[in-house]
Design a binder for these strands. Structure first.
Lengths: 208, 208
DNA sequence: CGACTGCTTGAAGAAATTCAATTTACGTGG
DNA sequence: CCACGTAAATTGAATTTCTTCAAGCAGTCG
């Protein structure tokens, strides 16, 4: 796994399940990379409605912002270990290291691209399409090479708030995909999933 | 108005209403700035559903991407004049000009921030809240200082595809805001709007 | 073992979409 | 300059989709 700054002596930090890493509008002091676990980053409306903008999985860098403060709240989805780098020291290094500067720009651009695709999902896809897109994304990001199955770290509630749906609608969509033979739950948990028919799943995820 | 590269001899180009500037997945050759008019940038699903990710108004820079190709299609909303800069020459300049590099990074970060806020709108706000948020955004971006009224360049259909709604729902929300005395249409067009009660409008746009 | 959390499923309700009709504005050509 | 055809917007009614409310079940963790 590529770390943010390999030369640095990186601090490591552990967060228990559900614990906040940083809050929206807090000063951005550190940049983080997930060593183990998963993190959700979200915004809240004043009445409590929540929109998760992204899940950060093993290897992902998060907390990078060009402003002074964070624009999301982030929390550990499960027990999570992160590496962290002081933001100031990173910025200082950017001044002299053009390669690192390029890395950070491409990272921001990658985040932008994800957000752009997610706007299409949230604005124009129906519930089944959203869940299909989600499964394809997670399959790509957390199914080990050659493995048949993935273990979702997040709850139905988290998935719902990522997809702009209610948790019941997510559950119904997953049940529908299971009944139609596209996926199957493994063991006695509902978070271990095998994609049985990738063709059909891709067909539901209408290309843009 | 700050132009992309003031020292350059900038090319100018005109697009008639509805004409495409560039298509999604086309190689990114130019970076653009709106001199006059307005541009919409959008993604399509294969069955024609459209999600507009942003409107680019006078002064805005668009078409900047870190990849090789554009990730949106863009079209002139009305008769539009743009300045354009060759992307390669811009990148070459970035190598030596750290200030310009900083400008571009902050521009990408600004686009990201807009997308992040828009995800919250698309995922969690209801129709009236979306329209209120839209009006506040447009009021900020295109009401001249001191002016009481704004002229929207885009149709109800465009607004709908920006807000993830049907055009009828947008129309009904605007009518509701008019009936409740929050805004008023000027003249015989429905695109000139005066915000009569900013307080009430802001109250509908729940803070995050 | 038992409270609890997470998930599923059903039924009722709400919100937004679709279909449809009408009105109003707009541009073109006679 | 007016008439006509077209495009844009509004409004109502019917329908669809998703949400909310509710009940029940299973797995987990003290």
């Amino acid at each position: 796994m590529r770390r943010i700054v390999t030369k640095d002596r990186l601090s490591e930090y552990k967060y228990k399940k559900g614990v906040e890493v940083y809050g929206e509008n807090e000063p951005a002091v550190f940049v983080y990379q997930v060593k183990e676990g998963a993190v959700r980053s979200y915004k809240l409306l004043s009445d409590g409605r929540r929109q998760i903008g992204a899940f950060h999985l093993v290897g992902d860098i998060f907390g990078l912002t060009s402003g002074e403060s964070h624009r999301f709240t982030t929390e550990a989805v499960v027990e999570t270990t992160v590496w962290l780098v002081n933001r100031r020291s990173l910025e200082a290094r950017v001044e002299i290291d053009a390669v690192l500067a390029g890395h950070l720009l491409r990272l921001t651009a990658k985040n932008l691209q994800h957000a752009e695709n997610h706007m299409l999902l949230l604005g124009r896809k129906d519930a089944l399409e959203r869940v299909a897109t989600f499964l394809i994304e997670m399959d790509r990001r957390l199914t080990a090479a050659g493995a048949m199955t993935m273990t979702l770290p997040m709850s139905r509630h988290d998935i719902a708030d990522y997809l702009g749906l209610s948790l019941e609608t997510v559950s119904r969509a997953l049940s529908k995909l299971r009944r139609s033979g596209i996926l199957s739950f493994i063991g006695n948990t509902q978070r271990e999933i095998t994609i049985l028919d990738r063709e059909k799943l891709f067909a539901l995820d209408l290309q843009d």
